[in-house]
Simulated assay, not measured.
Amino acid sequence: MTTPSLRDATAHVAAVAGVDGAEQLLENSALSGLVGHPVSVQHLRLKPGRSVHVAWRTVDDSPARWGWAEVTADPDKADKAVLRAEAAGETVELRRGDGAALLWGGLHGDRGLAKELRGARVVLGEDLPWEVLRYNPGKRVVARLDDGTGPVVLRVSRGTASFLEASRRWAEAGVPTLVPTPVGGRGSAVLTPWWGSSDLHRAPRTAAALEAGRLVGALHHGSRGRVWPGQVRREATPAVTAAGLLEVAPWLRGRVIAIAHQLEARLGELTETEPAWVHGDLSPDQVLHDGRGDIRVIDLDRAGSGPAALDVGSWLAACASMGLPQLSERFLTGYTESTGVDDRSLAISEALAQFRAAVDPFRKLRRDWPQAITRRIELAEQALGRIS
């Protein structure tokens, strides 16, 4: 079955969503008409038969304004969203339809984070401007701001304890990272310094990739066998990943099922190894550099204990999808100075990472998301093909 057009793929997802009004959140033009100004979707979450939830940003403002929109089959959820926003001094637009409610609003009226965002603004200053960098509706906001001492990065979520603990552990283990400072007493916001000139995705540096490999390899070697209490990585099984993929990409059914079966059969080769401290989402855009050789490993939200090969596979998969093979090579060179990893484990872990990330282009509602998902599946197949 060939990869469908964007129009046909979007029509399929709207049908899978199964809630009236979903199509208005799956196309930028329709969403722009809804909120009243040109916007683009930055993050999308689909729960078939229940809801579609998106984060959007304006495309003609500097800095951009951010907000959210949701269509839900749960009227109580819609009512609670309005009440939470009003309690935080924000406004939410609400339209009720046949069996569904459509609602939207600005960032600070987020139904899952309004209280936390309000708390951060009270502590930092109501009039302090935020330049939003990333927004996962109901879960996390990352913004750049100037608190009077210079530029800093603010992270707001429902809880920051695991992020604080991971940052402390990695720093104590000798990995250069940005140790956060709590904001207020709610445990939902932290500040980290604004550091470096770019990350390794936007501005690739082979020397920095080599150093990242050395640091991660040393961490894996030194932490091997040391379980991180309460932070053991638990990922979706290949079967669960396949089910989610096929909801949005049914044209890949045979290939997705075949990959899932191969990964299920081989996953034990990774999970039966001694655990180490792992990043959980390692990629070039998680490594900052200053252009002079120093680096910082960031975004430790998913850090914990797990098979070391998963970090390496995550890096290799990201480099392959970004078209940065030179960063894969240098990272591996640095990594193997401290610890080893066999080619078979590398192939399995890279295929697993490609498979788990295959749905990401849809979640970002890229204009080429059907083709991008297909490409990720091709990369997973290529990785599996290297298993000897």
Rank of each mutant, 00 (worst) to 15 (best):
A78L: 05
L34N: 07
D61L: 15
R144M: 11
K80L: 13
E116D: 10
V122G: 11
A78V: 08
G112H: 02
L94F: 05
L83W: 14
G49T: 13
V152M: 02
R121A: 10
L128H: 04
N136H: 15
T91R: 08
K139W: 12
L102H: 02
G106F: 01
L124A: 10
A85C: 12
R50D: 14
L102Y: 00
L103K: 04
G138Y: 14
G148D: 07
R84G: 04
R57Q: 08
N136I: 06
L145Y: 07
R45K: 06
G119W: 01
P129R: 03
G67C: 13
R84N: 09
H53V: 11
V123G: 04
A114C: 06
T91W: 03
D110R: 00
L113F: 08
V59D: 09
R134F: 03
R96I: 12
V123C: 11
V156I: 12
T58V: 08
A55V: 05
E70C: 10
G119P: 00
R121E: 06
R155D: 13
V132G: 06
A100R: 01
V122F: 09
D60R: 14
V152H: 03
T149S: 15
D61P: 09
V52Q: 01
L103D: 08
W66I: 11
A101C: 09
W66S: 09
K77P: 09
R121W: 00
S40V: 15
R144S: 11
G112I: 02
A88G: 08
A64H: 01
L113G: 04
K80V: 13
H108F: 13
R50V: 12
R45V: 14
A85M: 01
G97C: 05
T58C: 07
P129E: 11
V82S: 10
G125E: 03
L124P: 07
E126I: 13
Q42I: 11
Q42L: 14
K80Q: 08
K115C: 03
K80Y: 08
W56Q: 05
P137G: 02
L46F: 08
R111D: 11
D127M: 07
G138P: 03
R140N: 14
G97S: 11
G150S: 12
L113A: 05
G99F: 15
K77R: 11
P63K: 03
L83D: 10
R50G: 07
E93N: 14
V71H: 01
H53G: 12
V132T: 13
E90H: 09
A73P: 06
D147I: 04
R50I: 12
L34C: 06
R111F: 10
K77F: 04
G119N: 06
P137H: 00
D76Y: 08
Y135M: 12
A69C: 11
E126P: 15
W130K: 03
V92P: 05
P151G: 02
R121V: 12
V82D: 07
D146A: 07
K115P: 02
A143P: 05
A85H: 01
V152G: 07
H108R: 07
G148V: 12
T72H: 05
T91D: 13
W56N: 07
P129A: 08
L117I: 08
G150C: 10
E126V: 13
P75K: 08
H37V: 15
L154R: 00
D98C: 13
P38C: 14
H53C: 15
L44F: 11
H37F: 10
V39F: 04
V39L: 04
D146R: 02
D61F: 15
H108Q: 15
